[in-house]
Write a protein that binds this DNA or RNA. Structure first.
Lengths: 192, 192
DNA sequence: TTATCTATATATAACCC
DNA sequence: TGGGTTATATATAGATA
């Protein structure tokens, strides 16, 4: 008796090669995305806009109360340099940097965790072998060798901090702002 | 004895009254929204941008490749002309960003290399054991387990991309060279 | 492309630290 | 406040029509 494969299966988050599958997935997920955005707005009284360009370059949007108002509100967030505002901007930048650093920390923590659980060990070695011709017998790897990985991870982390500081110092960072709120309506449209 | 109800409950899609609950929900759902948007982009090669204003009016965004390029593309090639100074500033920032991205790339590449050479394997495992209580005998690690490491590296890379995108998204950085390609000069709109 | 039907993978509401 | 846990509600991959 044949047993057809039914039900959802786990997929890797990487580009889908089969164009048909990709299109179907795009369509389904786009729907889900718009739906959850809509729910977020309703549940929390938030305003939001989404613009998605399909693989074919076709734009789809959703907005509450509408896309344009959100874009305008967002675009107008960037205040002109104003002496009185300078100090506030500085504070905002600092907060933002802290958030970002936190995000980075969390990501690295997550990565470490996954590694700890051995969830992500498999492909890495394989890839290393493929890309770098590393053929040392895996079962010969001792604690001595494996330990070194943490050094790299730490290095990366430290470098990222430096890198962020550079951004800060060079004032490439622009402050974000706060603003008002509104509500009502919603629109989901396909643009051509 | 009464058993407390754990686990998810069905909720109506209507404004959450309790401010604490609303905040928690906003935070969680926003995360899910950004994540699925990111996945949509990765899986289908789509481009997208999301702008969400929290109930407090604070803006959160996500975009691939970045919010500005998406908005500009959506706004339909708005070839806004910047004045000379603005253009120069843009160019300078753009160069700086490119350098920084280059640095990041090199760091990641270097990290991969080190891992490939097994130079950094040692301490990682040790750290993992120390921090996460992973005590699997190292010499029992097979190719199967070790291969998974590449997934983590890929995850890290992807996360970095996303993270960097966030910087752009939040206007902490300006659009990359690529995203600016589309329009002649401007991607930056100012309100007078 | 759009819709339906599973069987599962995920997201997340309520709770607890 | 932020992180976990758990039980469930939902989303969705794959096959089909």
């Amino acid at each position: 008796m044949e047993r057809k494969q039914k039900g959802r299966k786990k997929i890797e988050i990487k580009k889908i090669r089969d164009s048909t599958t990709q299109l179907v997935t795009f369509s389904k997920r786009k729907y889900g995305l718009f739906k959850s955005t809509s729910e977020l707005c309703t549940l929390c009284g938030a305003d939001a806009a989404i613009i998605v360009f399909s693989p074919q370059g076709k734009p789809f949007t959703f907005g509450h109360p509408d896309v344009h108002s959100i874009i305008n509100r967002y675009s107008n967030q960037t205040p002109q340099t104003n002496d009185g505002i300078a100090a506030i901007e500085e504070a905002l930048k600092r907060d933002r940097i802290r958030d970002l650093n936190k995000q980075l920390d969390e990501q690295l923590k997550q990565l470490e965790k996954e590694m700890a659980q051995g969830e992500a060990l498999d492909k890495m070695i394989k890839e290393l072998q493929d890309h770098y011709g590393w053929h040392a017998p895996v079962n010969e790897l001792g604690l001595h060798d494996l330990e070194k990985l943490s050094v790299s991870l730490e290095d990366l982390k430290r470098n990222m901090d430096t890198w962020i500081n550079e951004l800060w110092i060079n004032e490439l960072l622009i402050p974000s702002e706060q603003s008002i709120h509104s509500s009502s309506l919603g629109s989901n449209q396909e643009v051509d």
